[in-house]
Design a protein around this nucleic acid. Structure first.
Lengths: 180, 180
DNA sequence: ACTTTATATATCGAACTGATACCATGCATC
DNA sequence: GATGCATGGTATCAGTTCGATATATAAAGT
């Protein structure tokens, strides 16, 4: 399940441009599958080459043509086949946890800053989740609700864990040596 | 905070080979920062070129030389500077959630399989966490304990969420259309 | 007057992933 | 007795992805 496949999945909800998909990668998918233009545009080109999507170029004055992609029947078949992977992975890449692992090499005030910023980041996600709910979540398919709820549950768990255990990282034992 | 920096951090606990570091990336760091040989060996070469680690080649008969790397004072300074990033990121890349997002395009039995496999994966992580604790967790620095506890908390939250909400994904409404 | 935000496409080097190759020993299995 | 797998070890490579940047226009905010 690469960016290509996720783009194809997004196109099952209707035709869209690369720009439109980017907005989805930032909002609904933001908490579990981010992608930038450098992945999206090549993915769409490649999908078009393989006949999995069709492309309509809509001229615009001054701006580059808006390229609207639509999933084809072949694309739909390909997607359903890709979704049959029995073990789709779930990976975390956390520079935050890597830094905390080495907290004893950091200045206590820097550890505090990192924790505060992480809590703020979590709060931003939580605000986004609440926004989704007030907007339109009741119309959503069950899968979308499940994924949103998953994000909320994990965000709350992270928030609670940090609140309850941050004292471990800034105790008297943490490296005065690095605090020169 | 790239693979290079994390390798440098690992070397603060003592000299090690690329092979040794790989084992750490699979065990202690496995749940939040994975890396393969394709990242580790170039990282160590690069660190050696920059004088941040020194390398001792220990000849072995039949096998390639064992290269043991040791952090230098310059490496220690570099690491402490790298750890001062106030906003280290925490990213999730979940093919699992992407698949569940499109659960309505999947066969109900395939959705079940995916959920079961995810629960098994979580159970494996939990077993690993328990193993760390019985082995040596009491000697660990606070940061290491914090990160282990974080992994445990998030694993439990994921497990509980899936157990409580899986019924949403396999209700009568889920795509009979794809169930040809 | 200046900067940011939004619309829209696209590219590029650096980094990373996952698989594979090479080489030896030992252990289990067929 | 042969085949395959695990362990210990280094290393590369094609394919993906990341993050930043470039280009262009216009509305809207400061």
């Amino acid at each position: 399940m690469d960016v290509k496949t996720v783009c194809l999945g997004m196109l099952t909800e209707g035709p869209a441009s690369g720009y439109d998909l980017k907005k989805q990668f930032e909002s609904t998918f933001g908490h579990f599958f981010a992608a930038g233009y450098g992945s999206i545009y090549p993915a769409l080109s490649s999908l078009a080459d393989e006949g999995l999507v069709s492309c309509e170029e809509i001229p615009q004055d001054g701006k580059p043509d808006r390229k609207v992609y639509e999933i084809t029947p072949a694309g739909h078949d390909y997607l359903c086949e890709a979704l049959r992977d029995p073990c789709p992975c779930h990976k975390v890449r956390s520079e935050f946890l890597a830094a905390m692992f080495f907290a004893h090499l950091m200045r206590p005030e820097d550890v505090e800053t990192v924790l505060e910023n992480r809590l703020e980041d979590i709060a931003r996600y939580q605000a986004m989740f609440r926004q989704f709910e007030v907007e339109n979540a009741s119309d959503w398919p069950e899968g979308k609700k499940f994924v949103l709820g998953f994000g909320k549950a994990i965000a709350s768990a992270m928030e609670a864990y940090i609140a309850e255990n941050r004292h471990l990282l800034v105790s008297q034992s943490t490296a005065k040596a690095a605090n020169g």
